[in-house]
Design a protein around this nucleic acid. Structure first.
Lengths: 231, 231
DNA sequence: CGCTATGTTGATCCATATCAATAAGTGTGG
DNA sequence: CCACACTTATTGATATGGATCAACATAGCG
């Protein structure tokens, strides 16, 4: 495996503090592969053979039931996915597919568990990562259960505007995926964008501009305990 | 603190493998208190000063936004809550209140973090617990996004029937809370119960009986990756 | 007992899904 | 580089799930 990837992985919070020798053990079985867009990496129900790390590109985590499908999250560099399944030696709850051309590192789950059993620093790093993931999903659940779809969209736009540090920004995913992520149909998302026009939201393709952020915020009522993904 | 509580806590997965001295450190600052029903233990947004352990009784985790409220989970003995917030030294995302008279152990979060930093076995136990919590919330999200309220209720009943190992059992919570937990209004839950009558679900007060489990299952389509809370 | 909270039922309204048709992109191969 | 095919996005019409409001029943509980 190229040295650049190795350094990149080593710098992740998850691996930064662990013993050199343990990191070497992990890297020995790791390989990095480049996948084209729209390639299935994981199917829900599969055993969690590899801990995945997105080095570049992006990955959609989604789930299906009874012919329906929904998007659960997007993983962007540099971060991991299916950590919980790896640790619990349990089947994956979500499927994963590349959204674009992506470089993915694959760490054999067995190795991850073995090192986890002996390296306290690694175990602690995993705790912090999992606690973060857990809190993110809880926020998501609150968003889903406490807000209407219009409110969810408004808050989504506010979060992304903040992240872009600009009142104008590009949606970084297809609208159909955004709709699924927000728990609505594509048709409904189209109408929701229209419904936010009175609050100064202008949409043209994937370009969003918010003419009066305060007005939008008065409607959306963003809340640190739902919308702040930093804690 | 009485020895019986101490033994009870020590036996929890979370504390079973840690060093004696570290367990003592934790217990030194811990106190156990009995609360009457419907007492607020935690308000979302509060700093996470104590890791809570439910020793007896039960606790409702709920969340509010913009005047709306929803139930997120029920914590039953013997297990912990707000572990993630404690670890991340972050504000609680959920509020907690006792449902009935409950004995709760309170472990100062600072102590938990301190021991976590030095005791690898404790860190590993926390990982397993958090991974479990994470997977539970993911399953919940799938339930919410992929199923209608009628399907959610049907699967809820099947899970509880399985847990009771009987086609007849008692709901262990108020219907209004069940409604909130399943993401619907109490009125809608009433009607949902009626809607399941054709599949052999009989309701009388809090007593549920399922006359034809297979028929109900054909409608509900329970799925290990949503409804199995053991992995 | 009677008060108060919970649960049920009915009527209605609203949000969102569904179905259908069209428009607008996007990528591919000639 | 363009034309075609295919996917995605939008719009309209309609259906439906679920919420809301209101009235009443019921059940705990002091």
């Amino acid at each position: 495996m190229p040295e650049t990837y190795r350094a990149e992985i080593r710098q992740l919070d998850l691996f930064a503090d662990m013993e050199d020798s343990n990191f070497e053990t992990l890297m020995r079985g790791t390989y990095v592969q480049t996948f084209p867009p729209r390639i299935d990496l994981i199917t829900e129900g599969d055993p969690s053979d590899f801990l995945h790390i997105v080095l570049s590109g992006s990955v959609d985590l989604f789930a299906c039931w009874n012919g329906r499908e929904t998007s659960m999250a997007t993983v962007r560099p540099v971060s991991t996915f299916i950590l919980a399944a790896t640790i619990r030696e349990a089947p994956n709850l979500m499927s994963a597919r590349t959204l674009e051309k992506s470089r993915i590192a694959l760490l054999p789950s067995e190795d991850v568990r073995a090192v986890f059993d002996t390296d306290g620093a690694f175990a602690r790093a995993i705790v912090r990562e999992l606690a973060q993931c857990y809190r993110t999903v809880v926020k998501n659940t609150k968003d889903l259960k406490l807000r209407t779809s219009l409110e969810r969209l408004a808050n989504y736009l506010i979060r992304h505007s903040a992240r872009a540090a600009s009142s104008e920004f590009e949606l970084n995913m297809e609208k159909r995926r955004l709709a699924a992520f927000l728990g609505m149909t594509p048709e409904n998302l189209s109408r929701a964008f229209k419904g936010l026009e009175p609050y100064g939201v202008k949409v043209s393709g994937s370009n969003i501009s918010i003419s009066d952020p305060d007005d939008l915020a008065r409607f959306a009522k963003p809340d640190l305990l739902i919308d702040d993904y930093s804690t």
